[in-house]
Design a protein around this nucleic acid. Sequence first.
DNA 1: AAAATTCTTGCAAGCGATTTCAAGTTGTGC
DNA 2: GCACAACTTGAAATCGCTTGCAAGAATTTT
Lengths: 339, 339
Amino acid sequence: MAHKVTIKELATAAGVSVTTVSQILNGKSNRFSSETIERVHQLQDQLNYVPNFNARNLILNEAKSIGVVVPNIGNPFFSSFINGIQRVSREFEYLPFNFSGANDSSLEEYYVEQLIGRGTNGLIIASSSITKNTIDKILKKNQIPYLLMDQNPLSDGDQVRTNDRVGGHLVAQYLLSMGHKKFSVVVPNDATDNIKLRITGFKEELVTQGLDPSSMINTVYSPLTKRGGFDAAITVVQSDATAVFAVNDELAIGLYRGLKKLGLKIPADISVMGYDGIDLDTFVEPELSTIQQPIARMGELATQLLINRINDPTISQQVVELPVRLIKRSSVSTPKIKN
Amino acid sequence: MAHKVTIKELATAAGVSVTTVSQILNGKSNRFSSETIERVHQLQDQLNYVPNFNARNLILNEAKSIGVVVPNIGNPFFSSFINGIQRVSREFEYLPFNFSGANDSSLEEYYVEQLIGRGTNGLIIASSSITKNTIDKILKKNQIPYLLMDQNPLSDGDQVRTNDRVGGHLVAQYLLSMGHKKFSVVVPNDATDNIKLRITGFKEELVTQGLDPSSMINTVYSPLTKRGGFDAAITVVQSDATAVFAVNDELAIGLYRGLKKLGLKIPADISVMGYDGIDLDTFVEPELSTIQQPIARMGELATQLLINRINDPTISQQVVELPVRLIKRSSVSTPKIKN
DNA sequence: AAAATTCTTGCAAGCGATTTCAAGTTGTGC
DNA sequence: GCACAACTTGAAATCGCTTGCAAGAATTTT
């Protein structure tokens, strides 16, 4: 290992005490003669002194870092989320450590534990494959500030959310307004609370309009991946649905491919609605109609709230709900007249 | 801040010394009576003792972590890369800290410095927006083990690479074999060495086949993003190219959209070749022909090599070159006969 | 010119863990 | 009953840095 210069060596070299060096390097230098200050800074450059972060944090009792665990950074939704987190973290001089669960719950648990063990100040977890309860337990037990995404609106703890229920309403309204009456809904088996709410909202809207959801919806279970969407296509086609609601865009984009492979034209033969609003939506054909979530903003807010809590764990529950927006593009049209 | 239980408190509670607790908790417990061991473990659970990582690392002089900076996690190429890194890191009990440069060089520099300051053991940098020289300087100056991706094959330092030149050859061979004679090449202005090599390889192959690159290639400069590809379409169309070589898949997928918007059919009107081999390729239409890089494997190897070097900085340069593979799908056909 | 300020600077006590070295206990063999 | 080995356990130094407190030097006040 390359030897690291310590503050003591720097002090000796500069002919002053470590106290002096420490003070100067930490900007409390107004109490020193400008020559000393100058000399110390010069020596620092020369000797290449970098403070030992562990020692520093040990005393200061802070790491100035937050941990972030998302289910899958391969999903652009989460990479945008991370971008938002990075932005605000930097602003507050926190360093965010990002991890992708890769759809493996043990891995997520592993990262959470590692992060805690390493003294992270707080955690943002947008997990899916691990049960909230497990994580909740670990985090509470360790008394570490955290913010869980995608949680049930009724749960305690700080929250950044969008109104998934309203999102569901919007989808149903739109699809109904286009004349659809038979739907396929593609959703994972182990859906998180927020995703379940999208479905709930969807059904609610049907009821609101005096319709009977049970006779109109065919549910297809499939994982939240492109592959999952692709595989779901065959089942979707076998139903009499004229429109599909895929609960996220990844799924929808996979579904696209599956449907096309089966010879269907979108939206002529079947309409498709996604959910999330990722960049990719406008690069597929036809451009995907979706519900847009302000995802980067969510990352920013999540960070903001978490840091608030780190600074003062006693504040009361923080909940921010961001609006969602229906984006009509070309993947939805009026239903085909069945012969 | 929630009070954290220290080893001393645990020791007092257990009625033993901190030495004992430390030894037991670190598995050097064979020297203690099973009652003591039992008691300590029990108390640990009960009091919820988590060792202070800073204190621990201070004395052990290690952080067991590596820093990772990629230009943009939004690109699936890099998320796969990170997945590979995560896999191997875990195996060696290192924790990888991942950052996305978000195409902002100052941001990348910031992360590199933060990471170093925090005592990361080594860095993997797959950067583009910051000059290699700058990073190189920072890293060398700090004598920290690192591995730069996408660097010139001639440079020193450990390397994990694919043969981009061969990749270029393959693209040219394929396109020529399909009968194309006029090409558009879409490439960023500030291309990294490896990307430049793809172009070099492409031209080389033309020469090898006795052709004159200068009269056959129309170069379009555009950033390595979907948006960049989209914007490049208009220029591409204005040339007489029958085939386009986009130097990465993101670009190609953006290009798809642009070309289609301009009314062209792929590959009937124009053929498109990508480069990277991301998942998304098979979900766009037509499926994208590309050069596949073993990206996850590259992440794994990069980590492996970096850890080798961390363990022994004196070993000689490590270079691993992984093979690339031409994947023919449906985005390339014979050129349209111009009227 | 002595006293009071103001500047500069350093001593030494930790932060929470690991680890070396040694000490106290108990058990064994003769 | 005693020396010695085998078990258990703890005291104290140390990692590199921050910081409260105090002291010596320089400057100003009276």
